[in-house]
Design a protein around this nucleic acid. Structure first.
Lengths: 205, 205, 205, 205
DNA sequence: TCATAAGCGAGACGGTACGTCCGGTCTTTGG
DNA sequence: CCAAAGACCGGACGTACCGTCTCGCTTATGA
């Protein structure tokens, strides 16, 4: 998942892995901001140049490292019930956002606000693939009539995940898994009062 | 709107204002990340110490500066139509998020990811007051039956604004004012297919 | 012993003394270099301005403070034996130069190397008066034939005291009182071998 | 002639020399006290860190720079006449002490009064080697009977040079070369009146 | 007796330099 | 020719002091 250029197949896989591991470890221990490239190099037993040869910045290293962590998780579940599947996935995300280790992700997104290349890498590497997974699941649900036919699915994906990111990045409140139900409820049923029948049950499919 | 301590009545209002102005100007010209405290001090014709005396960090200076900019805007509109009022307000936010000057806000939020004190200052100074404005408007709407009685209004505020922040901070796509309609439509009517009647009009009350 | 200008009889003797005392105390505790004007002001319970009103610099304050310390010591002894009187006086100086408190004097002379006004103050206040005392004593000795008639007494004063200052300021070796005898012996008898008789006993009186 | 530690063979000789040259130049132009480490670094086209890596302080840089200047001068002259040789050497020192460039040396000694490490460096690098040169010359003279056999030569060296340093550091009067004769005359012949001795003896011999 | 003028404690101010840290590049040495 | 080690230039950091300034308050003088 290298972002940089300038060399061929001579790359040392040993150093590659050591750098990613060291970067993650140090970020966990002291935070992304306090983790310097020098420190990563030293921790990895690697020359600083070796880092700069393969990544354009500290942020890029961590984008790759974070991605490698999350790469194990497979795609979106599909039980046939879109509400349940979204809940499953969102709860996983909400749980992750509550852990300390998500701080690194959070800080990386923060750093990317001043680093367009890093922002692009985050999008391409971390966000878009997962968004696409979600979107594909939504498409099936829409075809099955579980979701309004006129809804733009890109908008829907954002509507669903945005509250989690909002809380992560603004720190208004923790992304508790219980809140996932609340969000999904609102998103599925909308704000408008159900005129005849008194706002019926919430979840379902 | 000072964030720091250590002082009494001796404060020079002239320096105070010069610092906020200089900070905003430099951030506009070269971005928050490339704006150093030294540069702000020089631009403001002020000793660096004077900045550190009153603010704990560059980020804190800009939180106050940004707040002062937005302080002119009065509260939430109330025409009686919650949908229209939300649209008015969201369009204003979306417009702001599209301008270059919002980059400063964006980068400040980014920096706050590694600076809990700054994050708190953003919440207290910038976010919470505006969220409360919105919330109060929603309360009136709920009392008037324009919004489901069982909806938690804090959740609603987040649901509405989160997509704008999501796009601002992840850079998925610009926060075009046209998108505001789409978001509001989804939020008001929900994802669930309208069973008998084909997804009716959007606004209304 | 003020060095500065700008004022009349309104001077607060209380503050004057407090400043001198505080300056000496802090220099003893932490050295002249680490003693700031702010610290002196605070220790003395005095505004910084009050120091700058009466002295041009920290160094000037300490010149006066040191002088006040030494002002108690009366003039040069005169027992009729110039050798003995010089020894008495030199031993006193050598003892002082060995103590920790002479560090302040030493550092003040050091600071004066980059501050001509301070250098002049040291000369006028501390050095010249004592040199004149010594010179007057030497004049009487010369008239009594105890010192070569052709010796320039200014040169003699310097020749005698210079080795003590040399050791103080270059730190070659401590100014042990025993060394005073050695110096005086050399100065009185000279380096040249006593041709007929093999250089006999050393001191006298 | 490095004074600091922390490094091996990677040192850039180019930077090393540029720093010493810049330091001397700036001290000549504006004095040691007004010469900042930042200014030296800038003048030398060098990072400040590079200075701090190899020297503990500005003073240490100048000790080395001054030493390099004087390193060209070879040892003590030896014409067989100790009086003449001392005069030659002392005149050279006196001339140097009169020039503007000795101000740097003077200020460095001044700064060392508040910096024991620098004081030691001055001793080891600048003073002791030259003192030893002088001492060795005196030893030969003593063996040849040109100097009293019972004179301690370390004392003699100090006795001779101390008046020059005294005038340099206390600024009583300039170290005019003509004064060298006067000093040497006193030092060689002593203060005691010569033979027919009328005036009752003060001391012995 | 009181007005006034100054010194005074306090401390913020513009400014300079400090010594440290880190980013990104270059150089040295070894495999 | 890659890689470790790490020195290098540059620039920003946050702190410490400098000497000046502005505040109210107190205090001594002399009208």
């Amino acid at each position: 998942m290298t972002t940089q250029s300038a060399n061929p197949r001579y790359r040392s896989e040993r150093s590659h892995k050591a750098i990613l591991d060291a970067a993650l470890k140090l970020c966990l221990e002291q935070g992304f901001a306090k983790t310097s490239v020098d420190a990563i190099a030293k921790e990895a037993g690697v020359g600083k140049q070796t880092i700069y040869r393969w990544w354009p910045s500290k942020t890029a290293v961590l984008v790759e490292a974070i991605n490698r962590l999350g790469a194990t998780s497979v795609g979106f579940p599909d039980t046939g019930d879109i509400y349940a599947d979204l809940r499953t996935q969102m709860v996983a995300v909400a749980e992750y956002f509550r852990t300390t280790e998500s701080s690194t992700y959070r800080e990386v997104i923060g750093a990317a606000q001043s680093d367009p290349a890093a922002a692009q890498a985050i999008l391409d590497t971390l966000v878009t693939p997962r968004v696409q997974d979600c979107r594909r699941r939504l498409e099936r649900a829409q075809q099955q009539g579980q979701i309004r036919a006129d809804a733009d699915l890109d908008d829907v994906v954002e509507l669903i995940y945005a509250p989690l990111y909002y809380r992560l990045l603004l720190g208004t409140r923790p992304t508790a898994p219980e809140q996932v139900e609340v969000i999904l409820n609102l998103v599925f049923d909308g704000l408008r009062p159900r005129t005849p029948e008194p706002a019926s049950g919430v979840s379902g499919s």
